[in-house]
Design a protein around this nucleic acid. Structure first.
Lengths: 163, 163
DNA sequence: TCAAGGTAGTCTCTAATGCAACCAAATCAC
DNA sequence: GTGATTTGGTTGCATTAGAGACTACCTTGA
């Protein structure tokens, strides 16, 4: 019998962090193995494949990643022929990014794997629990964002990227 | 009205990661500001203050951090006079780490702040929801750990460090 | 039309994180 | 005991993430 129970183990932020790392780690491994993609690259592909042509700025808003991270991910995707940039007629500073045919094909494989991974990782939770979990995460994130110095500049939602 | 809803935003691992980062970031800021401590250092202090004298190996098990991270955190704590190492009679390779008086004093300030932060960050969730959230995180983590290649070597629990 | 200020994207430098190789002490095999 | 293997701890290296500066371009307001 344990002599002492750690209060660390009861500390929600700790539990959250450890769990998140475990989940992310597993996914990162899987994507690296199967597609040679890192998480940032994968996220960008997910958004592009789903939403079509976007600027880097849009991608920052959609993925909540740093603009540098987005930039690097885009560059990798472009170098690998998974995405292309075309000039933005409206704004000479930015480009539109879009998946290539190759990118689209890969996206077609990637999304099912994502869902499969989600299924596998969250198998310990039934449908209701997952829904509940998602709601709690959403509320938590929204709340944390409102409090304190808003962290990383661009702080608009990720919920929509309507045209 | 949004034209399209991102599937990324519905992807649980993504939501988990983003939320966890937001929470961790806020806490990290707070501890850096008030005590000049980083998360790994804080975790080690939390365990030492709570459990008394431990070896680095124990700390790895208790914090689920890399042994290198633990080592570095310990070194910082020692350099700052918050913890001391004393030889381990049983094993010449390792030392016992323990908070100094100074460290203990700081620990006395740190833990209330931790609880305060938890309260503040999780204000968006009521008591039941927090309990539920904790249960779900626990199940999730336990499940993820069982699947796939067990990641980072040492994989014993964090739930007990009995004598 | 021109200056002033703001924004998208890029580059660079530094800090943080994790891994692999390593050393020293302990344990095991004989 | 002596050599081989394991384990706690440490160091160094490679990878990653983030802050800041910088360029090119846009927008506004005179």
């Amino acid at each position: 019998m344990p002599q002492k129970i750690s209060r660390l183990a009861d500390f929600l932020p700790y539990l959250l962090s450890v769990t998140s790392n475990a989940v992310s780690g597993r996914i990162a491994d899987e994507y690296a193995l199967r597609f040679g993609l890192k998480i940032p690259e994968w996220r960008v592909m997910a958004v592009l494949g789903d939403a079509g042509s976007r600027t880097q700025r849009d991608l920052v808003g959609a993925t909540l990643m740093d603009k540098v991270a987005v930039n690097r991910a885009c560059k990798v995707l472009e170098d690998r022929g998974l995405a292309t940039r075309s000039p933005n007629a409206r704004d000479g500073r930015s480009h539109h990014l879009e998946l290539t045919e190759h990118g689209r094909t890969m996206h077609g494989q990637i999304m099912p794997l994502a869902l499969e991974m989600e299924e596998l990782l969250f198998a310990a939770l039934d449908a209701d629990e997952r829904a509940q979990f998602k709601v709690l995460l959403g509320r938590l994130r929204a709340h944390v964002r409102t409090m304190g110095g808003n962290e990383h500049g661009t702080d608009d939602g990720m919920e929509e990227f309507g045209a």
